[in-house]
Design a protein around this nucleic acid. Structure first.
Lengths: 341, 341
DNA sequence: CTGTTAGCGCCTTCAA
DNA sequence: TTGAAGGCGCTAACAG
């Protein structure tokens, strides 16, 4: 007969409340859950008993009885401390939290940047400590996704994978990079730019691939491969890459950047090279981060609906918990016009 | 008779394993938990049955039976997007995760930056969805701490409060700011600096108060109040404040900064004003962040043992879960000598 | 509308 | 060393 841990005073259970209110445990439970099978008067009596006893439902007991933990795990595989200069995940996270409010489900963030942390998280998921998993930072090539599928839990992926090997298994939400890139390219084209340079993030990144495709679709033959470069996602990388580009192709009149941080680097490189933005060279960023609004000059950029992505992820998770089949939602990007293009 | 949710196939329980292995549920349970009341042979049989059936313990059932969720909630009241701006929390978080490995407890991060999120988190804690709470960002003046105390859960505070109203209720771990500040002041003093300026963070911050006290203790009458200013924690604030200081007191020969980011701002202001660091002016930062190592020149700084703080927090939490009384641990800061002082 | 009854899945005491 | 039995705290089917 397990007695909680020794020393820990037995806490108030619904049986205590029932006794105190002079009703059965079932009725007390119904009152707690505000069922409308209970008289207003009985409810009042139970609530008074709750007041008097200081009762709080025990999540463990409820979870076992209902088969639900009322919890959504948010899996973050990037190390949180390395993530500090990329606001992307913070925004999506906020969206997930917002999307879950009112549902009775609590988002719990699970950091899983090391192999051992991943194993721990997986084990915990397998044991059904959460009702669904929102994976904020999915990537292929590990067996993490495979293991997640193995848990049988509802899983939502935030972000696009190369192809879609998990259609029908996971739900997915992502922003349409191809479309966003088209918007950027169309803008500089409409502006009469002729010699467009492209400074992208790492070549093996799916977002990079899609953005490049979007640019190419709109620019067509105007896109000279020699003016397309890949670099890191950050400002320093953008600066260096753009500076090099300006050496080899001094005549460029537009830069399509693969991220806002890259774009800010481009701005700096152009400034250093004595080019005026947007008079001599137009610059269009990608992401819609805060830094795009405060750069000099303020950056025209393709905004990803990150918070909305979180909202949708939450909805997908709730739907799957409710028994819905997995599905994929693609969100539209939008062009935010500022000064730089 | 509750049947889980409709549609959800009944999962494998320990009863299935027991049947499959031809033992009782009790024995199967013991084998699962590697009790040494079980023959090696029986264990093997059970594990084979587990293999065959694909059994995974259900956390909900176990939690109800043992009275433990095997989970430590890590409460973050700062908005997470800011968490990404300041590596401090990320480091402590890592420490907590490391400190918990091997304990069987999983850290789950709960974001509670809005009032409603706080309410949700508190409700969840009250329901015993976690076994302990590590509060990463405690501050006075809200009723959050009061409510946390009300849950009766073991709570660990990371960071020092103004006074100690929760001695004997919460455990606390923090780094000794007064001592750290003394180290910084002693350094510039030993260096023969005479006109020391102090650029602190917000005046109402407890860390600020303590750091100021530490500087004052060492500097004594050498600390001219007119050369002490308060500003924000970030680089831009540090730059502006230092620039102003250089206007009113052009003769300063040392800057004690309240954070590394402030110090980096000071470095920029000094550079802009044509001062050499450390020849003309010494600069000492505070925090020991990565930016201190990569600044120009590299920053001498007071390093907080953030990861260790996390380790200790985890230990305190585990101890309290085990029934230990709350206690407070104070960690020593250390001076990291680089070029700037 | 309320009470009775029977578990959810697991662990643990007790007796063998 | 193993099994039988009971209970952790709650909810839900069923009968009244």
């Amino acid at each position: 007969m397990p007695r909680g841990r020794p020393g820990a005073p037995r806490s108030v259970t619904i049986a205590d409340v029932a006794r105190e209110a002079g009703v059965s445990r079932a009725t007390a439970s119904r009152a707690v859950n505000d069922s409308d099978l209970v008289t207003a008067e009985t409810k009042r009596a139970v609530h008074e008993a709750i007041e008097r006893t200081g009762f709080v439902v025990n999540a463990r007991g409820r979870a076992l009885a209902t088969g639900r933990a009322e919890t959504v795990g948010v899996l973050v595989t990037e190390p949180l401390d390395e993530l500090f200069d990329d606001p992307t995940y913070g925004r999506v996270l906020r969206g997930v939290a917002e999307g879950l409010t009112g549902s009775g489900f609590l988002p719990v963030i699970i950091q899983a940047s090391s192999e051992s942390e991943r194993a721990l998280a997986l084990r915990s998921f397998g044991r059904r400590s959460v009702d669904a998993v929102v994976h904020l930072t999915p990537y292929r090539g590990s067996d993490l996704l495979e293991s997640l599928a193995g848990t049988g839990l509802p899983v939502v992926l935030c972000g696009q994978l190369d192809d879609s090997p998990y259609d029908g298994i996971f739900s997915t939400v992502y922003s349409d990079d191809v479309h966003g890139a088209r918007l950027a390219a169309e803008r500089v084209l409409a502006d009469g730019r002729e010699r467009v340079a492209v400074v992208l993030g790492p070549a093996d990144n799916p977002a990079t691939v899609d953005r490049r495709r979007g640019y190419a679709e709109v620019l067509g033959s105007r896109l000279d491969e020699a003016r397309v470069v890949h670099t890191g996602w950050d400002t320093a990388a953008g600066l260096a890459a753009t500076a090099r580009l300006l050496k080899s192709h001094p005549d460029i009149d537009a830069v399509l950047a693969g991220s806002d941080r890259i774009a800010v680097g481009s701005l700096a490189a152009l400034h250093a090279a004595g080019r005026q933005v947007p008079e001599d060279v137009a610059v269009v960023g990608f992401d819609g981060h805060a830094i795009a609004a405060t750069s000099t000059p303020p950056l025209t950029t393709v905004a990803q609906p990150l918070v909305e992505e979180g909202h949708v992820a939450a909805r997908l998770a709730l739907d799957m918990i409710g028994g819905a089949a997995p599905r994929t939602e693609v969100l539209e990007m939008s062009l935010v016009s500022r000064v730089s293009a």
